[in-house]
């Protein structure tokens, strides 16, 4: 399990990294925590000629609050995220999701930016980011742009990131009074989800005022179940309404058949995870 040969670069600034990525062309890949890319390289499913290690760029590791949003640097590790008091208070859904990613060693190196930018449908953060209406900051040769998580995922490992662009930060809107939950079914610790569901909702007078739903690993991309969420607004989350919304969410899934089970099973599990996440999010809403 030896990766193909490549040249290693470790720029000190983002500008240098972007310039390098542009000049080295399509055979160059940015390297963050490496916990998706290095396994792919070992299996020779990926064989970049150049790796641009982002570890030397200090300002990609910051966590801050700016203009009502949590701003997370792309190189923030899952471990650093879990240790952040700011994130615990402002976006507990991220904490709940990060706790369920892989194991302690992998969380120590795996980054938020790598998790969302790689486009692996098994990763947990993409559906969570879609659910939270997060946006990604991409820095490329033509400058900086923001891309909504909900517009980012085109297919398995196929994202809106253009050639030469590096995802540098994630903006998560902070909304008071939200109840959130991430429910993940997995065969064992460290495994990708059989199915998982993220829910963010607010309640007013016992009824759902706003609702957003994300689904993990039940399609070639993470899913934002917009219609299912809309069906719940104005309801008390009574059993009948939940059942209808869950059916609508299941209907947009297209799970792969693999060691985690056949498609019909995984579709049903997505529904179960969603049912549980809705109940738990409602119990947490202010």
């Amino acid at each position: 399990m030896i990766p193909g040969a490549f040249e290693y670069h470790r720029p000190k600034t983002l500008v240098d990294a972007v310039t390098m990525l542009a000049s080295l062309g399509e055979d160059a890949r940015p390297l963050a925590g490496g916990h998706s890319l290095i396994p792919l390289m070992k299996q020779r499913l990926s064989a970049p000629s150049h790796l641009i290690d982002l570890a030397g760029i200090g300002d990609l590791r910051t966590i801050s609050e700016e203009n009502g949003a949590l701003v997370l640097g792309a190189m923030v590790t899952q471990r650093a995220l879990l240790a952040s008091a700011l994130v615990q208070v402002k976006a507990p859904l991220l904490i709940e999701a990060a706790q369920q990613i892989a194991d302690p060693q992998i969380r120590a190196l795996g980054t938020l930016g790598g998790n969302v930018a790689n486009g692996d449908p098994g990763n947990d953060m993409p559906a969570v980011m879609m659910c939270l209406d997060a946006s990604y900051v991409a820095q490329g040769p033509k400058g900086m742009r923001h891309i909504k998580a909900r517009d980012f995922y085109h297919g398995a490992y196929d994202t809106a990131l253009a050639a030469g662009e590096i995802l540098t930060a994630i903006h998560v809107p902070i909304v008071a009074g939200q109840g959130t939950a991430y429910e993940k079914l997995k065969r064992k610790i460290g495994d990708y989800a059989v199915a998982a569901a993220a829910v963010v909702l607010t309640m007013a007078n016992g009824k759902v005022a706003t609702c957003s739903i994300g689904l993990t690993n039940v399609a070639p991309t993470p899913l934002w179940a917009k219609d299912a969420a809309a069906m719940l607004v104005g309801t008390t989350l009574d059993a009948g309404s939940v059942k209808k919304a869950v059916a609508a969410a299941e209907a947009i899934t297209d799970p792969a058949s693999d060691g985690r089970g056949p498609p019909d099973y995984r579709r049903k599990m997505a529904g179960i995870m969603l049912t549980r996440a809705l109940a738990r999010a409602a119990s947490r809403a202010a």
Partner: peptide
């Protein structure tokens, strides 16, 4: 990066040394 037999301590955290390049 599943089994952890290669776990070492690197800059104060436990990591799996099979999923890291020496140059890093």
């Amino acid at each position: 990066s599943h089994c952890g037999a290669c776990t070492i301590d690197l800059d104060g955290v436990s990591v799996k040394s099979c999923t890291r390049f020496a140059v890093q």
